[in-house]
Write a protein that binds this DNA or RNA. Structure first.
Lengths: 182, 182
DNA sequence: ACAATAGCTGTCCGATCGGTCAGCTCTGAC
DNA sequence: GTCAGAGCTGACCGATCGGACAGCTATTGT
C-alpha cells in the first residue's frame, strides 16, 4: 500500500492531547497513548524523543497564539486595549479548549517548558491590558477572575453552541470588568 | 519524652496537601510526602490505609462545606438564592484555597471518591441558584464563568488581602451575573 | 517488674513507569 | 535484483511507584 510521510504521527498527537486533557500529563502513560493511537509504545519514541516532547509539541501552537495576541495588544491603549485583550483571550481559549484543560491539570510540569516559559509574563500583560483605565489596585482581582472564568468555561463541556459560548463569554467578561459591551 | 496521641498525623495531612496542591496528586509520591512530613514512607501507611485515603481525608472538609452550602440554599428562592449562592461559594473557596488547587490538578482522580461523588451535582445546583430568575438558557454560561472565576482566583496567589479579595470576588461575580451588588 | 500496645521504621515486593536497542518489513531508487 | 533507509515493533532495562510486613522502641496499665 501507499506510504504517506507518516499519518501515525498526527494520530499520536491527537491521542496524547485527548488523554492529557482527561487523565492529566502524569496520569496518561506512554502505554495508554500508544493503545489509543493504535501503535506500539516504541513507536511513540520513534516519532518523538520523549514524552515531554509530545507535550511540548502539543502546546506549542497555543503558546504561539498567546504570543501573537501579546504582540497585537502592544500597540493598543486604554479602552481599546481592554476590549481587544478580552476578545483575543476568549478567541484563543475557544481555539485551544483541550490545551487549556491540559494546562490546568499539570501546571508544574509545564512551567519549565521553553515553548511555554513566557506564558506567565504574557498572561500578566493580558491582565494588565484588561484593567487598563481603572487605577485601583484591586482591579487586578477582576482580571484574575476573567482569565479564570474564560479558561474554565472553555475547558468545561458547556452544553452551548460555540458561537453562543464565545458571545456570552465576551459579554460576561466585559461585565465582570465593569465595562458594558458595545 | 511525652507521647501525644499523634501529632505526626496532622503533619502528614499538611505536607500532603501542600504537595498535592503544588505537584498534583500523581506528581507527589509517598516518598516526597514522607520527606516533607519528616517521617518514613511506612509511617504514612501506618496512619492511612493508602495514598488515596490521605487525599480523601484531605478533601472531606471541603466536600462537607459544599454539602452544607447546598442544604442552606435549598430553602431560598429568586434573588435571595442567587446572592446566597455567590457569597456562600466565595466564602467556601476562600476557606479551601489549597483544596481547590488540588481539585484542578487531578480532576479524574477525584471523580470516583465517595467523599466527593456528590460534588458535581451540588455544583450544578449552585449554578442553578446563581442563574435563578433569568430564564434564558445561555445564562448557564455565566454561572460556569462565576464558578471558574472564583475557583481560579482563590487557587491563585493574588497579591491582595483576604478580606479585600473576598469583597472583590463577590462584587465581580454578581456583576458577571448581571446583578448589581447591594 | 513485666506484659501489652501504640507509634514508627527498614526492608522487601510486584507492578508500572519512561526509555533503549536490535531487528523486522516494506518501499523507492538504481 | 538488490540495496538503503524510513517506519515500526517486541523485548528488555533501571528507576520509581504504592504498598506489605516483621520487628524495634517506648510508654502505659497492672
Amino acid at each position: 500500500m501507499a506510504r504517506p510521510p507518516s499519518a501515525l504521527r498526527g494520530h499520536i498527537l491527537d491521542s496524547a492531547l485527548q488523554l492529557f486533557a482527561t487523565q492529566g500529563y502524569k496520569g496518561a502513560s506512554l502505554h495508554d497513548i500508544a493503545q489509543v493511537a493504535g501503535c506500539s509504545k516504541a513507536s511513540l519514541l520513534y516519532h518523538f524523543v520523549s514524552k515531554e516532547a509530545i507535550l511540548a509539541e502539543l502546546l506549542t501552537p497555543a503558546g504561539e497564539g498567546l504570543a501573537a495576541l501579546d504582540a497585537r495588544l502592544s500597540g493598543l491603549e486604554g479602552e481599546e486595549a481592554a476590549e481587544a485583550a478580552v476578545t483575543g483571550f476568549v478567541d484563543l481559549a475557544m481555539r485551544f479548549r483541550r490545551e487549556v484543560k491540559v494546562l490546568f491539570q499539570d501546571i508544574p510540569v509545564l512551567a519549565g517548558h521553553p515553548a511555554l516559559g513566557a506564558v506567565p509574563a504574557v498572561v500578566d500583560r493580558l491582565m494588565a491590558a484588561m484593567v487598563e483605565g481603572s487605577t485601583e489596585p484591586k482591579a487586578l482581582v477582576t482580571a484574575y477572575m476573567v482569565v479564570g472564568a474564560v479558561a474554565v468555561t472553555c475547558a468545561a463541556d458547556v452544553p452551548v453552541e460555540d458561537d453562543d459560548l464565545r458571545a456570552e463569554l465576551i459579554k460576561g467578561a466585559l461585565r465582570t470588568l465593569g465595562r458594558q459591551s458595545r
